[in-house]
Each structure stands twice: as C-alpha cells, then as structure tokens.
Design a protein around this nucleic acid. Sequence first.
DNA 1: CTGTATCCTCTTAGATACTG
DNA 2: CAGTATCTAAGAGGATACAG
Lengths: 133, 133
Amino acid sequence: MSSTSQVSRATTKLNKGDLCNPSCPSRGVLEHVTSRWGVLIFILLRQRTHRFSDLGRRVGGVSQKMLAQTLQNLEADGFVTRTVHPTVPPQVEYGLTPIGLEAATRVQQLAVWIEDITPKVLQVRAKRVRTPS
Amino acid sequence: MSSTSQVSRATTKLNKGDLCNPSCPSRGVLEHVTSRWGVLIFILLRQRTHRFSDLGRRVGGVSQKMLAQTLQNLEADGFVTRTVHPTVPPQVEYGLTPIGLEAATRVQQLAVWIEDITPKVLQVRAKRVRTPS
DNA sequence: CTGTATCCTCTTAGATACTG
DNA sequence: CAGTATCTAAGAGGATACAG
C-alpha cells in the first residue's frame, strides 16, 4: 500500500502497445470511447449537436443517470463539448471537439462494419445451436 | 414468455443505422468486439495464435473465468477459432477467422489511435482539476 | 429542461476450489 | 493444461424524487 514509486512511474509512463498492462491509462480512455452508451452518443453527435433530452430520446434504453455519466466522462476526456445557453428553461447543447469528431468517425466506421457483418454472425450463432455430433 | 412473434421479427430485421434500437442484434456483436477483454484478445491474436494460459499471462488482470467467457463469445460469433490438439496434457490453440482478423485489424487501429491521443486526454483531465473560475 | 441524489436490483467479475 | 462450478464483492444501471 505504501510503495508508490512503482505506481507513479507506471501511470506517467506511456509505452506503446502497453494496453495489456492493467495500469495503462489508455485502457481507461478506450473503455470510455467504446463503452456501451459512448459509442451511440458518438454516432449521434457526429450527425449534429444534440440537447440532453434529445439524446435521451434517441438512444434507446439509456437512463438519465447513465447518459449524464457517459457525457461527463467524454467531456472530461476532451471528446465532447457542453454548451449552456442561458435561456429559460435552461438549454444545454452537446457537440464534439475536433478530437471527438475524429473519435466519432473511427467509432462509427467500426460500428458500420459490425452492422454489415452482423447477418453473418447471426448465421454462425444459429449453426452452433444445432446438436453437436 | 410465449409471445415470440414480436421478438422474432425484431431480431430478424436488420435496419442500417439502427444501433440506437435496444433490440438491434448488432449491439450485442459490437459489445462483444469492443468489450474490455475482447479488444485485448483481438490485438494479441492478431500477432499470432495463442494458447489459453498464454493469453491469461499476457492480458494483465484478466481472470480465467472472464478469459474463457470472452473467448467463447468471440468464438460463437465466428471471430475466433479454437483448435484442440489431442496431446497430453491437452493443448488448445486460439486464433482468428478471416472475419476475426478483419475485426482485429479495425479494433487495433482504434486502439493505436487511442494510445496516440492518450497524452492529450490526460492533459485535459488534469486541467479540469484546476479550481474552476 | 437539465441534471443530482437516493435507493435498490441485477449483472459482472474476481478468487478459489475442483474436474477431465 | 484448460477449463468449470461456486461463492461473494463490487459496480453498473434503473426508477423515482427532487433541485436549480
């Protein structure tokens, strides 16, 4: 508990291809980006900016809590912008930073590919249900 | 439990860009591929085939249970091959199918990019800690 | 409208022990 | 070696109520 020297070195040092290391900070970033709701938020924000309730309505099955939490993570990482319009009632606009747009593009490319091959995956899954031997 | 008509229609129909729909099957596939351990397994298997304990050693922080579970998911989806060599002691070789290789390549591209921008993300996070206003 | 706070449930995931 | 089974702890996540 008291040996911090190793830890501090581990968290400040960023080795390439070190994702398999549990203390690699990139792992946290990757998990934010590829998180269940993060992916969908990226895809929606890439089309246009959205308001909070907007996102809540379009992302099927998300709760307010997880929506807020995911948005805060992505904002803290510098992917998402949060703009408060001083109107009444309050209106908050979520968008993407330049780096967020790049992330969104990459994530969506992966998502589109997944959608493309999903039929094939479903076929494979279905076959595996057959009685083996 | 007995009304299968609605469900079967929902699961067989694959609309493009329908990821926001909670019942879209692509969401499950995407979650397998981008899962915490799935990403790392893809990256390792892209280099070469690995044995079970091999993966367990190289993927930092994974338990046998999660390793087996993730591998089974990816195998059931048709991304990962599992070859049992009838030796003693038993030896099981995990590798990638053609479609798995494609997935691994895309996943790794994303991972590499994340590693690239992680320093920037850490800077943003650090700044947010400063006293606001 | 945009959240936060609380409570509560259910899944995930790790540790350990055990089997073929 | 390559898993499975079981137990348990921690966290994800949802519903509701409430605040600014």
